[in-house]
Design a protein around this nucleic acid. Sequence first.
DNA 1: GCCGACTATCGAACGACGTTCCATTCGGAG
DNA 2: CTCCGAATGGAACGTCGTTCGATAGTCGGC
Lengths: 215, 215
Amino acid sequence: MEAVLTAAVALLDEGGKPALTFRALATRLGTGVGSIYWYVAGKDELFDRATDHVIGEVLTAVRALPGSDDPIADLRAMAVTLFDAIMDRPWLAAYFMRNTDVQGNSLRLYEEIGRQTLRLDLTPRQRFHAASAVLGVVVGTAADLGMELPQEVLDGQVDRDQFLERFAETWRGLDAAEFPFVTAIADEFAGHDDRDQFLAALDLTLAGLRLQAGA
Amino acid sequence: MEAVLTAAVALLDEGGKPALTFRALATRLGTGVGSIYWYVAGKDELFDRATDHVIGEVLTAVRALPGSDDPIADLRAMAVTLFDAIMDRPWLAAYFMRNTDVQGNSLRLYEEIGRQTLRLDLTPRQRFHAASAVLGVVVGTAADLGMELPQEVLDGQVDRDQFLERFAETWRGLDAAEFPFVTAIADEFAGHDDRDQFLAALDLTLAGLRLQAGA
DNA sequence: GCCGACTATCGAACGACGTTCCATTCGGAG
DNA sequence: CTCCGAATGGAACGTCGTTCGATAGTCGGC
């Protein structure tokens, strides 16, 4: 069981979600395809279990955070930890979008984040919305992060900066009257860092949250 | 070509992303599978074109918005319009997560949103991040919206509220010492409205944005 | 020593899918 | 009528998730 999950995670790390295949997994484990079905009911459960497995690592990382007297600062640190984990393993983003079993480590992570809102002066509903909003920022930014890279970039044939520059070049060439915004921020897009983009979005909602909590 | 796209959208509306199949599409069009390949290079392009097709409708809806003297209010209205469109067609969420061709209507929609940031007192980078953050909130919330419903709910066998209540019941039964947050907001989760959740998250980032812009 | 019951393994086979390929048909220009 | 590119249709291929039955191994009870 444990060997199945670690092998599945290894496949995901190497080739992303499409690389996780029952046949590939069986080959790596040196067994037959049918054996895997004795441990998991199907592909969904396999994916869920494998993902929950690494969410466990994220959870321990989150729990190991020092913590401070500022709940929002702690909230920020947790979100950053989660985001960094997704940057390392982009296929993780797909997990949060099919959270059928809101159980296990995913629930515990949700608890860790939501617990910070208990330290803020908010109504229960506001707490619920705050925790969801923070998670939403992570997922929302991570979503167009893992998927934006076509195969040629993953293969290392094309540099990421070159890839962005190609788009920026197209944007710069657009009609400035019809696309005042896009032409204006083409340069920003060219060299942009996904992590900075995430932090900016996160800090916006946290600023709003701080305002709401009156802290 | 046009018929192919409208049929593809119809299939997506009826059964979501897994329902969009070359064979199903060919059957609906009364042709062969190979014919579709004369119009599109593959499944990815088919999905992109079909999605961009409906994004066009969202774009006209966004452009039809009245507009006000408050850029942030306009930003909010646009985000809500986009979110509502995704609520109607949950499979749309998957589109924004694989925006390979940042061209077409998607780009125009991005322009429409970003243009509002030009009316705010921000640096170019802040404008770029603001537009991305707003889109991120929409995508982030919409993501765990379309996917959270298992098949039994889509089939109408189980009511959505019953489905949520089932989770809430589990959460209420957890140890309050170990899960102080989850047990506290179980009631909120039970009857929660996805749209309210989205609006709360959106308003948080917009409040932060308003703070940043000093408006 | 034999037995059934349970745990666990294996790979052939099935149906659905995306994609390729090629023979065929159509329609207008010469 | 001829011809050539535009457009069509569907058989065929490889891969995928999943199912299924055959086959061992293990262990307690008689």
